[in-house]
Design a protein around this nucleic acid. Structure first.
Lengths: 335, 335
DNA sequence: GAACATAATGTAAACGTTTACATTATATTT
DNA sequence: AAATATAATGTAAACGTTTACATTATGTTC
């Protein structure tokens, strides 16, 4: 493990020159450049990023906060982020909020202490206080929200078009002949689940299907009571199509429907959300909305890297558009 | 954002004393301790971990390398690691090898440059050259392998008892009345899949079931040819029990079996491996071996933290024992 | 070839801590 | 109360880079 000093010693050049070569400054001749690089190679030079970070104020680290890392949606986003920032010489450091705003704040604190150059965050369900934004602005640490974001202005966000995704899913179910649709909603504290619900409602109205609040069910998994409510609702109202807020819940619903003796897609059609890998593993494979998690990660990464050399913070919004994947669970069988 | 200097200025004490208080050294009086802590609070002191890392050589960061972050097994392990090290004031930094030994080496290099205090790694399928261990020893950076490890001596490892897990699974299938068992193997380049295969074989022999190499199938998913081989084998040999190397593959097999018209568990019984959350989402829920991923993460984390203040590197091995989870897919129906 | 511009290199301070060593204050022993 | 031990604090260097500023070498213009 040799440092910049060793190279200086070996080449007889000054520390400044070595540093300039290693950071490919233009203020250096081609000749010395190659001398230095050769020496660096020969000595197996390993830069000490900590020292560089201390002096320059740039750590080359991007901090990421997600609710849960073992949620395939988030881990795919992280995948996308890592891919993009890795190419640009940055490392990522990950923290989980576990849906707790306390842990979220704590993670941000840690990131500041570690001198991260930027922060990417998908907020927890609990989050309602965003005063940390002021602090980050003070410290000049840019922050980009992805997927889950606070409902405030002047932020940078890359989100998914949940509204339109839900609209497409619902529209598709209607076009397959659906007349009695319901929507299984997610946690309505999060704006994105609200958007999905709105998209459902909009499609219902667009196609003149009667819409009432009881066409939307919030269901707590593993709650026998909620399960019963769902079963009753399906049977009493001749439900023929269900749009579910997420693939996991969708599989849960799928199993309930099967247990009632209905055939999918013959009797009831189903569309999920998220395109998790499990969605193709069940029988029948479920139609779903692809959220392009990796793309989201890459866009978020690109956005944060661009923000790094911004003098004045600007706001930014990118909305990724949904893709409907039609699989067995919603295909009306052509007799 | 105030630093140690600001506290010194405010309290009139020297930098050394402040630092001592903040690192709870014993060499400081209770009185000054409280003075300093109050001042720190009042000034909203935020330690600069980069500076501390540079001077002390301790970054308070643990590097983790996994093949894929969006593999639920690994993300659960990471969960366990983060939980444990987080409690001890450490952060984690994550890199993915994507099963490439080149990326793996690159990640290790990055970690060294970032001055991580320790490294946790689950090696890629490609890995065969472990010369980086010498370098790390030189740099005095401890390394702990989890789940996937090189087959060499004098390392620290926390692994799972794949052999016994496979044995238990197979034994269970036999006890449920299985006579014609097969095993769908994973990538036999990895020792853990070899161990699972060995466990299967051992159980077969232990219970005097005829065992031949063609009772083990390596199947590439999405290969029509392999799928056909599997189908043929099941039908020709009256297979009644299948032990599959992992839950995902198991669901794949489950769907094939269903498509052949067999009933599970009536005609064929199935056990997977890994206890992924999807294993309970399919119909019927599949029996599986729980790998206690979070535990593994915690043990690995504990091991690496303990290694930090070791003068001489020692070797270490912890083997986590399997838990058999019996679900529908392997329950013989009591007539 | 003098005068100037520009390119290339060098010097030394700085980043914010920790820590070896030195000093001073306090407690204990005689 | 002097002598000694111990506890508490201070001084200043160090960690390995980057970078503002200074200097020297090279090229260009007349």
């Amino acid at each position: 493990m040799s440092g910049i000093k060793d190279i200086a010693k070996k080449t007889g050049l000054s520390l400044a020159t070595i540093s300039r070569v290693l950071n490919n400054s233009t203020l250096v001749s081609e000749k010395t450049k190659s001398i230095v690089l050769n020496a660096a190679q020969a000595l197996d030079y390993q830069p000490n990023l900590t020292a560089a970070a201390l002096r320059s104020g740039k750590s080359k680290i991007i901090g990421i906060i997600v609710p849960e890392i073992n949620n395939p949606f988030f881990s795919s986003i992280i995948n996308g982020i890592e891919q993009y920032v890795g190419k640009n010489g940055y490392s990522i450091i990950i923290a989980q909020s576990h849906e707790s705003k306390k842990k979220e704040r704590h993670a941000i604190q840690s990131f500041v202490k570690l001198n991260v150059d930027g922060i990417l965050v998908s907020i927890s369900k609990e989050s309602n206080d965003f005063s940390f934004l002021d602090k980050l602005k003070q410290e000049k640490i840019p922050i980009v929200f992805f997927d889950r974001k606070p409902q405030i202005d002047n932020i940078k966000e890359v989100v998914f078009d949940d509204y339109y995704g839900a609209f497409m899913a619902t529209e598709h179910l209607i076009q397959q002949g659906g007349n009695h649709l319901i929507h299984i909603a997610g946690d309505l504290n999060l704006s994105l689940y609200k958007d999905r619900k709105r998209g459902f409602q909009a499609a219902m109205e667009r196609y003149q299907k009667s819409y009432a609040e009881n066409h939307v069910l919030e269901l707590k998994k593993n709650s026998a009571q909620d399960t019963q409510i769902l079963k009753d609702h399906i049977q009493k109202n001749n439900v023929d199509s269900i749009f579910v807020n997420g693939d996991e819940d969708c599989i849960y619903v799928l199993n309930i429907i099967k247990s009632l003796g209905y055939k999918i897609p013959r009797d009831i059609r189903l569309v999920g959300f998220g395109n998790l890998s499990i969605s193709t593993l069940v029988q029948p494979p479920i139609s779903t909305i692809d959220q392009r998690a990796e793309d989201m990660g890459m866009v978020a990464a690109k956005t944060i890297l661009q923000s790094l050399d911004e003098k004045q913070p600007t706001s930014f919004k990118e909305v990724l558009s949904p893709k409907l994947l039609i699989r067995e669970s919603s295909k009306v069988i052509s007799s």
